[in-house]
């Protein structure tokens, strides 16, 4: 074990764009690797989240598995960060909240264009969808919000740098975007 800050990340109902943006910090990722130890993330491919200092969540909560992962993150992470439009307000996936779940499933699997062998998937391995998609702060307490679709790499870097060095979290005007 090292004294490095342990960081875990997960993508729930997101597109992994925010994770791509984390990688977009380019060579600074080497600097980051000196400062932090990655726990569960899509980069390490660790499946369970351990005790961590910082948990970063991309995407909203759309199914039972998302709820479980999110609560596990909250239990294990001292600081939880809501990263990107979808985890903050549901984003594009929340546009389904205008319709009932039944309407969404029927449109996708029964009546959609080009659907063959029409049937709504019911394999028990598939996590059950929630009636509505929720931003993560409606399920667990969130400590920090970083908006953007995705948040620019520079914004993520500024945040991590300030957080890890104990400085106040502050951003330049151009670093904060909702789109």
């Amino acid at each position: 074990m090292t004294n490095k800050t342990r960081v875990a990340t997960a993508s729930l109902a997101g597109c992994f764009g925010c994770h791509m943006s984390i990688l977009d910090i380019d060579e600074r990722i080497i600097q980051l690797a000196d400062l932090v130890e990655f726990d569960r993330t899509p980069i390490t491919d660790i499946k369970e989240v351990g005790e961590c200092d910082v948990g970063i969540i991309e995407g909203g909560v759309c199914n039972a598995d998302n709820v479980e992962v999110l609560k596990e993150f909250r239990r294990n992470c001292k600081i939880l960060v809501s990263l990107g439009a979808c985890s903050i307000n549901g984003g594009i996936p929340a546009m389904r909240n205008q319709y009932t779940l039944k309407q969404c499933l029927e449109e996708s699997y029964l009546h959609g264009i080009g659907v063959e062998d029409a049937q709504i998937p019911s394999d028990p391995e598939i996590p059950l969808l929630l009636n509505k998609l929720h931003p993560i702060h409606e399920v667990v307490w969130v400590d920090y919000f970083l908006p953007g679709c995705p948040p620019p790499a520079d914004t993520i870097w500024t945040f991590l740098e300030e957080l890890l060095s104990g400085k106040p979290i502050e951003f330049a005007y151009r670093q904060i975007r909702y789109d």
């Binding site: 307000n89 594009i92 929340a94 546009m95 920090y144 005007y173 904060i176 909702y178 789109d179």
Partner: peptide
């Protein structure tokens, strides 16, 4: 329902701009 990433007004929307000015990070 303010889905900024899917809105044509994004970037020249006054609601967004005032929220940026007031340092709103999330609703």
């Amino acid at each position: 329902n303010h889905v900024c990433p899917a809105c044509e007004k994004s970037g020249r929307c006054q609601l967004q701009a005032v929220a940026y000015y007031c340092n709103m990070l999330a609703p």
